[in-house]
Protein backbone atom coordinates (compact mmCIF):
# COMPACT_ATOMS: atom_id res chain seq x y z
CA UNK A 1 0.00 0.00 0.00
CA UNK A 2 1.29 3.45 -0.82
CA UNK A 3 1.76 6.04 1.84
CA UNK A 4 -0.05 8.70 -0.11
CA UNK A 5 -1.93 11.38 1.72
CA UNK A 6 -5.27 9.86 0.67
CA UNK A 7 -4.70 7.04 3.12
CA UNK A 8 -4.54 9.40 6.08
CA UNK A 9 -7.46 11.20 7.65
CA UNK A 10 -7.02 14.94 7.96
CA UNK A 11 -8.30 15.22 11.50
CA UNK A 12 -6.92 17.22 14.38
CA UNK A 13 -7.39 14.43 16.92
CA UNK A 14 -6.95 17.06 19.58
CA UNK A 15 -6.38 15.33 22.93
CA UNK A 16 -8.58 17.76 24.84
CA UNK A 17 -11.43 17.26 22.41
CA UNK A 18 -10.96 13.49 22.52
CA UNK A 19 -11.11 13.55 26.31
CA UNK A 20 -14.24 15.69 26.19
CA UNK A 21 -15.82 13.11 23.88
CA UNK A 22 -14.88 10.36 26.33
CA UNK A 23 -16.46 12.31 29.16
CA UNK A 24 -19.62 12.84 27.14
CA UNK A 25 -19.91 9.12 26.41
CA UNK A 26 -19.12 8.12 29.96
CA UNK A 27 -21.73 10.55 31.27
CA UNK A 28 -24.36 9.45 28.79
CA UNK A 29 -23.76 5.77 29.50
CA UNK A 30 -22.94 6.10 33.20
CA UNK A 31 -19.82 4.20 32.17
CA UNK A 32 -16.65 3.25 34.02
CA UNK A 33 -13.03 2.88 32.73
CA UNK A 34 -12.57 6.63 32.24
CA UNK A 35 -9.05 6.54 33.67
CA UNK A 36 -8.13 3.61 31.39
CA UNK A 37 -9.26 5.59 28.36
CA UNK A 38 -7.56 8.84 29.31
CA UNK A 39 -4.12 7.24 29.56
CA UNK A 40 -4.01 6.28 25.90
CA UNK A 41 -5.50 9.40 24.30
CA UNK A 42 -2.24 10.81 22.95
CA UNK A 43 -1.15 7.37 21.72
CA UNK A 44 -4.35 7.00 19.72
CA UNK A 45 -4.28 10.62 18.55
CA UNK A 46 -0.82 10.19 17.05
CA UNK A 47 -1.68 6.83 15.49
CA UNK A 48 -4.87 8.12 13.89
CA UNK A 49 -3.33 11.36 12.70
CA UNK A 50 -0.07 10.12 11.25
CA UNK A 51 0.25 6.34 11.09
CA UNK A 52 -2.99 4.45 10.55
CA UNK A 53 -3.75 4.16 6.84
CA UNK A 54 -7.39 3.64 5.95
CA UNK A 55 -7.74 4.19 2.19
CA UNK A 56 -10.78 6.36 1.66
CA UNK A 57 -11.25 6.51 5.44
CA UNK A 58 -12.90 3.09 5.12
CA UNK A 59 -12.66 1.14 8.41
CA UNK A 60 -13.16 -2.13 6.51
CA UNK A 61 -10.79 -1.46 3.62
CA UNK A 62 -8.99 -4.74 2.88
CA UNK A 63 -5.64 -2.95 2.69
CA UNK A 64 -6.03 -0.91 5.88
CA UNK A 65 -3.53 -0.93 8.68
CA UNK A 66 -4.84 -2.79 11.67
CA UNK A 67 -5.37 -1.24 15.08
CA UNK A 68 -6.00 -3.91 17.68
CA UNK A 69 -7.06 -2.50 21.02
CA UNK A 70 -6.10 -5.50 23.08
CA UNK A 71 -6.47 -3.29 26.14
CA UNK A 72 -10.21 -3.21 25.53
CA UNK A 73 -10.86 -1.17 28.65
CA UNK A 74 -9.69 1.94 26.83
CA UNK A 75 -12.31 1.59 24.12
CA UNK A 76 -13.90 4.99 24.77
CA UNK A 77 -10.69 6.66 23.60
CA UNK A 78 -10.96 4.77 20.32
CA UNK A 79 -14.65 5.67 20.07
CA UNK A 80 -13.64 9.31 20.43
CA UNK A 81 -11.25 8.93 17.48
CA UNK A 82 -13.90 7.07 15.47
CA UNK A 83 -16.27 9.94 16.18
CA UNK A 84 -13.78 12.35 14.66
CA UNK A 85 -13.35 10.10 11.63
CA UNK A 86 -17.09 10.11 11.12
CA UNK A 87 -17.43 6.38 11.76
CA UNK A 88 -19.61 7.27 14.72
CA UNK A 89 -21.87 10.26 15.23
CA UNK A 90 -23.32 12.18 18.15
CA UNK A 91 -26.25 9.80 18.42
CA UNK A 92 -23.82 7.02 19.35
CA UNK A 93 -22.55 9.21 22.17
CA UNK A 94 -26.02 10.12 23.35
CA UNK A 95 -27.20 6.53 23.25
CA UNK A 96 -24.07 4.96 24.78
CA UNK A 97 -25.08 1.90 26.84
CA UNK A 98 -28.77 2.47 26.17
CA UNK A 99 -30.90 -0.60 25.49
CA UNK A 100 -30.22 -2.06 22.07
CA UNK A 101 -27.16 0.08 21.35
CA UNK A 102 -24.21 -1.55 19.61
CA UNK A 103 -21.18 0.01 21.25
CA UNK A 104 -19.94 -2.16 24.09
CA UNK A 105 -17.96 -1.12 27.14
CA UNK A 106 -15.01 -3.15 25.86
CA UNK A 107 -13.60 -3.58 22.35
CA UNK A 108 -15.92 -5.71 20.21
CA UNK A 109 -14.82 -6.86 16.77
CA UNK A 110 -18.31 -6.51 15.30
CA UNK A 111 -18.00 -2.73 15.49
CA UNK A 112 -16.29 -1.23 12.45
CA UNK A 113 -12.99 0.24 13.57
CA UNK A 114 -12.44 -2.31 16.32
CA UNK A 115 -10.49 -5.26 15.00
CA UNK A 116 -10.62 -7.51 18.04
CA UNK A 117 -12.88 -8.53 20.87
CA UNK A 118 -11.00 -7.83 24.05
CA UNK A 119 -11.34 -6.93 27.66
CA UNK A 120 -10.71 -10.47 28.54
CA UNK A 121 -7.06 -9.58 28.38
CA UNK A 122 -4.29 -11.06 26.28
CA UNK A 123 -6.57 -11.94 23.36
CA UNK A 124 -6.10 -9.00 21.01
CA UNK A 125 -2.34 -9.37 21.06
CA UNK A 126 -2.47 -12.89 19.60
CA UNK A 127 -5.12 -12.02 17.03
CA UNK A 128 -3.08 -8.98 16.01
CA UNK A 129 -0.07 -11.25 15.52
CA UNK A 130 -2.16 -13.39 13.20
CA UNK A 131 -3.13 -10.29 11.23
CA UNK A 132 0.52 -9.25 10.99
CA UNK A 133 1.51 -12.76 9.94
CA UNK A 134 -1.21 -12.81 7.29
CA UNK A 135 -0.01 -9.46 5.92
CA UNK A 136 3.58 -10.64 5.83
CA UNK A 137 2.69 -13.91 4.12
CA UNK A 138 0.62 -12.03 1.55
CA UNK A 139 3.42 -9.60 0.81
CA UNK A 140 1.19 -6.72 1.90
CA UNK A 141 2.58 -3.49 3.29
CA UNK A 142 -0.13 -3.33 5.95
CA UNK A 143 1.07 -2.63 9.47
CA UNK A 144 -0.51 -3.93 12.65
CA UNK A 145 -0.56 -1.71 15.72
CA UNK A 146 -1.55 -3.41 18.93
CA UNK A 147 -2.16 -1.54 22.17
CA UNK A 148 -1.80 -3.52 25.36
CA UNK A 149 -1.93 -2.48 28.99
CA UNK A 150 0.72 -3.05 31.61
CA UNK A 151 -1.83 -4.83 33.78
CA UNK A 152 -2.74 -6.88 30.74
CA UNK A 153 0.88 -7.97 30.52
CA UNK A 154 0.25 -10.26 33.50
CA UNK A 155 -1.43 -12.53 30.95
CA UNK A 156 0.57 -15.48 29.64
CA UNK A 157 -0.49 -15.21 25.97
CA UNK A 158 1.28 -11.82 25.74
CA UNK A 159 4.58 -13.56 26.27
CA UNK A 160 3.66 -16.61 24.21
CA UNK A 161 2.90 -14.19 21.41
CA UNK A 162 6.06 -12.18 21.94
CA UNK A 163 8.06 -15.34 21.30
CA UNK A 164 6.15 -16.01 18.09
CA UNK A 165 6.51 -12.42 16.87
CA UNK A 166 10.26 -12.59 17.21
CA UNK A 167 10.51 -16.11 15.80
CA UNK A 168 8.78 -14.96 12.61
CA UNK A 169 10.44 -11.55 12.49
CA UNK A 170 7.17 -9.69 12.30
CA UNK A 171 8.67 -6.27 11.68
CA UNK A 172 5.18 -5.11 10.62
CA UNK A 173 3.91 -5.71 14.17
CA UNK A 174 4.11 -2.73 16.48
CA UNK A 175 2.87 -3.13 20.01
CA UNK A 176 2.42 -0.13 22.25
CA UNK A 177 2.31 -0.74 25.96
CA UNK A 178 0.11 1.79 27.77
CA UNK A 179 2.21 1.65 30.92
CA UNK A 180 0.21 3.68 33.40
CA UNK A 181 1.48 1.75 36.40
CA UNK A 182 -1.96 0.89 37.69
CA UNK A 183 -4.20 -2.10 37.26
CA UNK A 184 -7.66 -2.79 38.57
CA UNK A 185 -6.82 -3.32 42.21
CA UNK A 186 -3.74 -1.17 42.67
CA UNK A 187 -0.26 -0.45 41.38
CA UNK A 188 1.42 -2.91 39.05
CA UNK A 189 4.54 -2.66 41.22
CA UNK A 190 2.62 -3.90 44.23
CA UNK A 191 0.54 -6.55 42.46
CA UNK A 192 2.76 -8.10 39.79
CA UNK A 193 5.88 -6.06 39.23
CA UNK A 194 6.73 -6.00 35.55
CA UNK A 195 10.15 -4.47 36.02
CA UNK A 196 11.72 -2.95 32.93
CA UNK A 197 9.30 -3.64 30.10
CA UNK A 198 11.69 -2.30 27.48
CA UNK A 199 14.32 -4.78 28.57
CA UNK A 200 11.76 -7.56 28.74
CA UNK A 201 10.59 -7.03 25.19
CA UNK A 202 14.16 -6.55 23.98
CA UNK A 203 15.11 -9.85 25.56
CA UNK A 204 12.20 -11.47 23.74
CA UNK A 205 13.68 -10.26 20.45
CA UNK A 206 11.86 -6.97 19.92
CA UNK A 207 13.18 -3.61 18.85
CA UNK A 208 12.02 -1.76 21.95
CA UNK A 209 11.92 1.83 23.07
CA UNK A 210 10.51 3.91 25.91
CA UNK A 211 8.66 7.16 25.43
CA UNK A 212 6.52 9.64 27.35
CA UNK A 213 3.10 8.41 26.29
CA UNK A 214 1.57 11.88 26.54
CA UNK A 215 4.25 13.64 24.48
CA UNK A 216 2.87 13.56 20.96
CA UNK A 217 6.12 14.73 19.40
CA UNK A 218 8.05 11.97 21.13
CA UNK A 219 5.43 9.36 20.25
CA UNK A 220 5.53 10.47 16.64
CA UNK A 221 9.31 10.29 16.52
CA UNK A 222 9.47 6.84 18.10
CA UNK A 223 6.79 5.40 15.83
CA UNK A 224 8.44 6.96 12.79
CA UNK A 225 11.70 5.25 13.69
CA UNK A 226 9.87 1.96 13.99
CA UNK A 227 7.93 2.31 10.76
CA UNK A 228 10.71 3.73 8.61
CA UNK A 229 13.57 1.64 9.93
CA UNK A 230 14.94 -1.56 8.44
CA UNK A 231 15.24 -3.53 11.66
CA UNK A 232 13.60 -6.94 11.02
CA UNK A 233 12.46 -7.37 14.61
CA UNK A 234 8.91 -6.76 15.85
CA UNK A 235 8.51 -3.47 17.69
CA UNK A 236 7.51 -2.61 21.24
CA UNK A 237 6.98 0.96 22.35
CA UNK A 238 6.70 1.33 26.09
CA UNK A 239 4.57 4.43 26.57
CA UNK A 240 4.90 5.81 30.08
CA UNK A 241 1.47 7.19 30.83
CA UNK A 242 -0.69 8.48 33.63
CA UNK A 243 -3.99 6.79 34.31
CA UNK A 244 -6.70 9.45 34.21
CA UNK A 245 -4.37 11.88 32.43
CA UNK A 246 -5.81 15.29 31.69
CA UNK A 247 -8.11 15.78 34.66
CA UNK A 248 -6.38 16.60 37.92
CA UNK A 249 -8.60 14.64 40.25
CA UNK A 250 -8.49 11.55 38.03
CA UNK A 251 -4.74 11.45 37.43
CA UNK A 252 -3.09 8.48 39.13
CA UNK A 253 -6.29 7.93 41.08
CA UNK A 254 -7.23 4.33 40.48
CA UNK A 255 -10.76 5.01 41.68
CA UNK A 256 -11.38 6.23 38.12
CA UNK A 257 -10.97 2.70 36.85
CA UNK A 258 -14.44 2.11 38.29
CA UNK A 259 -15.93 5.47 39.22
CA UNK A 260 -18.88 6.99 37.39
CA UNK A 261 -19.35 10.66 36.69
CA UNK A 262 -21.74 12.79 38.67
CA UNK A 263 -23.09 16.07 37.33
CA UNK A 264 -20.49 17.79 39.48
CA UNK A 265 -17.43 15.74 38.48
CA UNK A 266 -18.54 15.86 34.87
CA UNK A 267 -18.69 19.65 34.93
CA UNK A 268 -15.43 19.94 36.83
CA UNK A 269 -13.60 17.61 34.44
CA UNK A 270 -14.91 19.46 31.41
CA UNK A 271 -13.75 22.77 32.86
CA UNK A 272 -10.22 21.38 33.10
CA UNK A 273 -10.39 20.27 29.49
CA UNK A 274 -11.50 23.60 28.06
CA UNK A 275 -9.31 24.94 25.31
Amino acid sequence: MSSTQANYFAGAFDPKQLRRSILAMAKAGNAVHIGCSFSLVEILAVLHRDFLRYPGNDPDHPQRDYLALSKGHGVMAQYACMLERGWLDDSHVARYFSDGSALMGLSDSRTQGLEVTSGSLGHGFSVALGLALAAKRSGSQQRTFCIIGDGESNEGPIWEGALLAAQHKLANFITIVDENGLQAMGSTADIMDLGAMEAKFASFGFEAAVVDGHDETALHAALTRFCDGQDPRPKALIAKTVKGKGVSFMENNNAWHYSRLTDETFAQANRELED
Binding site: S126, G130, L131, A134, Q167
Partner: peptide
Protein backbone atom coordinates in the same frame (compact mmCIF):
# COMPACT_ATOMS: atom_id res chain seq x y z
CA UNK B 1 5.37 -23.85 19.93
CA UNK B 2 4.00 -25.07 23.22
CA UNK B 3 1.67 -22.09 23.46
CA UNK B 4 -1.90 -23.05 22.63
CA UNK B 5 -3.65 -19.87 23.75
CA UNK B 6 -1.56 -17.69 21.49
CA UNK B 7 -1.84 -20.20 18.65
CA UNK B 8 -5.63 -20.00 18.59
CA UNK B 9 -5.55 -16.20 18.60
CA UNK B 10 -2.99 -16.21 15.78
CA UNK B 11 -5.25 -18.57 13.82
CA UNK B 12 -8.09 -16.08 14.25
CA UNK B 13 -5.90 -13.25 12.94
CA UNK B 14 -4.80 -15.36 9.97
CA UNK B 15 -8.44 -16.12 9.18
CA UNK B 16 -9.26 -12.41 9.37
CA UNK B 17 -6.40 -11.82 6.98
CA UNK B 18 -7.89 -14.22 4.41
Amino acid sequence: GVAEQNMVGVAAGLARGG
